[in-house]
């Protein structure tokens, strides 16, 4: 554990809390993509199967359970809880995530896992872990698309996405730190490439976020 990873994890937890708070305060789901959180739930459920097989630390286990429960709670709130449920506009949140996210990531994960480990080293848990790394890298896409459609970004929504992006950026710093200060460090290029891709997806958002904070004006995205 280092300061960057801890800050990254905290930023992630904070973003989830901000979103839950935002849903409860505003009592609507305008500008929020439930599909992004469904993708994150798939990511967490496929990655954290090692909760049953390996114990790393109490911190690690608690955070994993927290991510799963809080993400499920976001989905439940938007899809099933009134009055929020009736404000959720399905037609705006129409990213075809099975075709454009889950299926391609499953294929890519199968190919890279088989190349990496061969038939003999094949492990279903490993395969799902690789799949979750790929899927996480694009899980924010439905949210960014919804944002683009609404164009005007509500304050807390902007903050929730900002902390989500900050979390990914801090993880890159964490890898740089680990590579420099840990003995027997091993590079993992799939993790790096997906992590960088995921962070790059936020760059455009960050640009307009900081611009609006600086001007103190309303946060709107260009057409």
């Amino acid at each position: 554990m280092n300061i960057f990873r801890l800050a990254g994890d905290m930023s992630h937890v904070f973003s989830i809390l901000v979103l839950l708070l935002r849903l409860r305060v505003a009592k609507n789901a305008q500008g929020i993509s439930v599909r992004t959180h469904e993708l994150f739930l798939i990511v967490f459920l496929t990655r954290y199967l090692d909760l049953f097989t390996t114990f790393y630390s109490l911190y690690n286990s608690i955070m994993k359970i927290l991510y799963i429960v809080s993400t499920a709670s976001i989905i439940y709130t938007i899809k099933f809880q009134e009055p929020i449920k009736s404000t959720y506009d399905k037609s705006q949140d129409s990213f075809l995530y099975w075709q454009f996210a889950v299926a391609p990531c499953a294929v890519l994960a199968s190919v890279t896992h088989l190349i990496g480990s061969g038939i003999s080293g094949f492990s279903f848990i490993e395969l799902l872990w690789t799949f979750s790394i790929y899927l996480e890298s694009i899980a924010i896409l439905p949210q960014l698309i919804v944002l683009q459609r609404y164009r005007e970004v509500e304050n807390l929504t902007g903050n929730y996405i900002f902390f989500m992006g900050a979390y990914r950026f801090l993880y890159i710093l964490n890898w740089i730190y680990r590579a420099n200060f840990e003995a027997h460090y091993q590079h993992h290029w799939v993790v790096y490439i997906c992590g960088v891709l995921q962070t790059l997806l936020y760059v455009d958002f960050f640009y307009y976020y900081f611009k609006s904070k600086k001007s103190g004006g309303r946060f709107t995205l260009p057409t």
């Binding site: 992630h12 090692d50 390996t54 630390s57 872990w129 091993q186």
Partner: peptide
């Protein structure tokens, strides 16, 4: 077992 390396991350 080397594969465990990155799995202590979330």
């Amino acid at each position: 077992i080397d594969d465990l390396y990155f799995k202590d991350e979330l």
